[in-house]
Simulated assay, not measured.
Amino acid sequence: MSTATATAPSPTSAPVAQGKVTQLRVLNSEWIKLRTLRSTPITLLVAVAAEVGLGILVTYLRASHPRHGGVEHINGAELSLAMYRLAQLAVGVLGVLIISGEYTTGMIRASLSAVPKRLPVLWAKAAVYGAVLLVLMTIASLAAFYGGQAVLSSYGQAAHMSDPGVTRVVFGTALYLTVIGLLGVATGALIRNSAGAIAALFGVLLVLPGLADLLPATWVPNVVPYLPSKAGEALLNVVPDPSLMSPWNGFALFVGYAVVLLAAAAVLLKRRDA
């Protein structure tokens, strides 16, 4: 006489429900990556410290020790925000590392295996980092501006947000730094090597304008205003610089460079092996 023995199914044999890959889920994944990356808080802290801390310090030193030992008229808004030049190094480097670091460690294979269409990964990295930068750099720009004006008020040279061009420069600084970060993401995706991408990014942004001094004088007006950094910096002058593009046209061109690089990175991401 035989008896049948019922065996309870093993808990480990239960099918695992797998959710559909959506852009929202990829965004959440990239947000987790960004905030848990060790270099993120350090690099962003350096950017904020450069723009706010050094900005206030430079403002104080310039106001308390005027050039040529006499009374000097100071553009308070531009002076207090001048350290964006250092902050851009930090946000640009982090933008590169966000994606090139995954190629270095090999984690990019796991990311692209989880998201076979690939492009949502790039869009999510750019969107998450861009949003973080826009919020953080806006706060930093406001802090640098108001901190600098608090210093300059003792010398009777403080600027005010209601002054012509000041609001554009304050919020334009945050926009400029956000686009720098996106250029970093695009360059990292294109070159996929951290050192090479960082060198390329800042070669174009910082070295290329210096090399423009070697051009014939007749070429300069037709070349320099359209360089990426010069186009973006047109937004950062309280009184528009006649040698550059108009503020918003220059910034539009600057954004265009970022869009073109991100589009090129998207094409290569689809075509190249991880």
Rank of each mutant, 00 (worst) to 15 (best):
Y226D: 05
G69L: 13
R118G: 06
V223W: 05
G53K: 02
W248V: 15
L201D: 01
V223I: 08
T22A: 10
A49S: 13
I32M: 14
L261S: 01
L177S: 00
S162N: 10
A140E: 04
L244T: 05
M137S: 03
Q18Y: 12
A234N: 11
V179T: 03
S229E: 13
G210Q: 15
S100Q: 00
R38K: 14
Y84S: 10
T22M: 12
G19A: 15
L215M: 07
L86N: 13
E233T: 14
V151F: 01
I74G: 01
N28I: 08
P41W: 14
V71K: 12
N28L: 10
L269G: 03
W248A: 10
R192L: 04
P228R: 12
G147V: 11
V204I: 15
L142C: 13
V151H: 00
G196A: 12
A195I: 15
P216T: 07
A50E: 05
I108W: 00
V26T: 05
K33E: 03
L244K: 04
I42M: 11
H73W: 09
H160N: 03
K20R: 15
S153T: 15
H68T: 10
A17C: 06
G148C: 06
L227Q: 06
E78V: 02
G55E: 00
A124P: 01
R62F: 10
A131W: 10
Y257F: 13
V239Y: 05
M107R: 07
S246Y: 08
A200I: 09
I99V: 15
L119R: 15
N222G: 15
A212V: 06
L54H: 02
V46P: 00
L214K: 01
Q18H: 15
K20N: 12
F254D: 05
G55Q: 01
A263S: 12
T3D: 11
